[in-house]
Nucleic acid binder design. Structure first.
Lengths: 189, 189, 189, 189
DNA sequence: GATGAATGAGAATTCATTCAT
DNA sequence: GATGAATGAATTCTCATTCAT
């Protein structure tokens, strides 16, 4: 290869796309994304074959990024409730710290340009918390529902909590706690 | 008057917009919306001055439609829990019956073309359930959180439940019940 | 005829067209013209078969109106110079009094929607000052040029003078006099 | 740079716009202008951000082009009258040689799409003949009027002369001479 | 690989004109 | 005759993508 694709440029494009999709939805023009990334219009297409591919990659990147920062750190000892709360707090703090990424994710989530394949792949990133769910079931502290159901509740209430925090940042801790209370009381047996 | 503006046509446009926005987001072309409504391209603009106005009206219409069908029927006697459940069931059944309207509403909700004014107006449609929240507080059966917080939880879990039903229509009743269980346990004191 | 066309409406349309063409050129929409005339969009077309016809009629009307108010009053005795000056003053005062009509006329004059036929017809309205030109020639006070040339000089300098007055209305009399001085010194032998 | 903006294409667009504006006024469609310039519709907008900008640039270009060809060549010795006549002849010959440019200029001059800023800028191009006006005043050969007035007379009579020549090209020299006679006799003391 | 000019298929919107009422 | 809704071609401008440099 004469000159390898630069990872830095790839990430600059994704970062730019994230910002513009958050602000203007998936209709954000590729030309603006390229400019925001300080690249020429055409260069974007050597890194992503099409806008759809860029959007799908971005979705994946954001989901993975979120999983990476949230999942690994939770304490493997402690009660199931504590571990869920630890996870919840990571979830909320990540989202509150990266409002732009969250907004972009919301836009992408409702777009028909994100394929089912991409959505499926992104779910894998969360596979690692499965262990937590399983233990919860074994211990009988969770309602008798499939993991996917509880995961969905988590996502819905987490998203909601982040929206509330986005509107009133000063109430960050209050909403984080209130949200977890609803979550835990809602899903525990 | 030569020919009065036809309410039927206005509604045909809204119905067409609903369908296409549900499928393709707010980027759905006005020309396609008009064709779907069996009208000429230009006619759309005698009913709605601009695409933005159409989108905002559609949002309002869907929210109001939803409120109209859901809100009024709940029994004014019975326990707070029963009344919440009755409301929840109306919410879920409406959404399950009108998946297209729901999808359109989700698209519109994240679009920056829906003004704050429109969002505020649409909130008024739900004013009538306030009484239910208030009684819940007076009776001490709800957690000590502002109405808006509980309303948001309701919306988040309701949306989630509808998404689950959309994926597995045969599990309609199961998810409706499971969703309410999470909701009630999550918000009751 | 069940109901004869109303002369008042015809004139309302012409007046409205005059105003809007003056402001926005011949691109002024017929719908706006109709509204300005307090008529329905369609009504305009029972008075004028097409926009082009309206524009041509307007051109003719304005030219004729101008001729009617300017031409007839000049004194048939007096020197050729005095009579020219009298005519000039009528010309300028009409134009200064009707700036909207003048602006409309300028827009129409450069438009390719005004046919040669209309332009020719409008020239006829000025036939009556021919006598003045002829006498001027006979008396040898005018340069040896065809009437049309001197008429054109008159039009050019008159238009110029009116533009200057439009810019500085307070200098009306000054410019009227200065303009005539250029005209007369320019065309007299 | 990948491919630099081509000056040739810019000029092709201006030339095409000139031709079509001369023929059909400022309403000439950008699509036709692009086609006339043998470019794709969209390409026009990489050279001019909007139709208004194109129109304003065209106005400026034509005025400047005219000034460049007319102004510089006049002899700095000789009588004021001779120098004015030299200038006049340049003016007329340019206009007669470029009837399309002249027609376009007339259309643009009455259009409200040409901003005051553009008009002011274009006036600067003529700053160089100021010296001629000033000397004329010092020598007392001109009527006691501001430069702008005499400049306006020049423009009005020049335009008129060119219109006459456009109608009868064979009389070019006759009208050029007759026009100057009116101008000089009209403005000299 | 990087650049950005070139492309042309849409996009929203306007408008002269027609015609049902 | 009057009305104004209906029409759809035309208009300006945008944008994903290509490709010459």
């Amino acid at each position: 290869m004469a000159r390898p694709l630069s990872e830095a440029k790839r990430e600059a494009i994704l970062a730019a796309a994230c910002k513009l999709v958050a602000e203007h939805g998936t209709g954000a023009p590729t030309a603006k994304i390229a400019r925001e990334a300080r690249l020429a219009e055409g260069t974007l297409f050597t890194y992503f074959a099409s806008k759809d591919e860029l959007l799908n990659q971005l979705y994946l990147e954001l989901k993975t990024d979120f999983a990476k920062l949230t999942v690994p750190s939770y304490p493997s000892n402690g009660s199931v409730r504590d571990r869920f709360e630890h996870f919840w707090n990571g979830f909320i703090d990540w989202g509150a710290k990266h409002p732009v990424k969250r907004k972009a994710l919301r836009q992408l989530a409702v777009s028909d340009r994100i394929t089912q394949e991409t959505r499926d792949k992104s779910a894998i990133a969360f596979a690692e918390i499965s262990a937590l769910f399983e233990q919860g079931h074994r211990d009988g502290v969770l309602k008798d529902q499939p993991q996917s159901f509880i995961g969905t509740v988590l996502d819905a209430l987490g998203t909601m909590t982040l929206d509330l925090i986005a509107q009133e940042p000063s109430q960050h801790e209050h909403y984080r706690k209130a949200g977890f209370s609803v979550f835990w009381d809602g899903i525990s047996a």
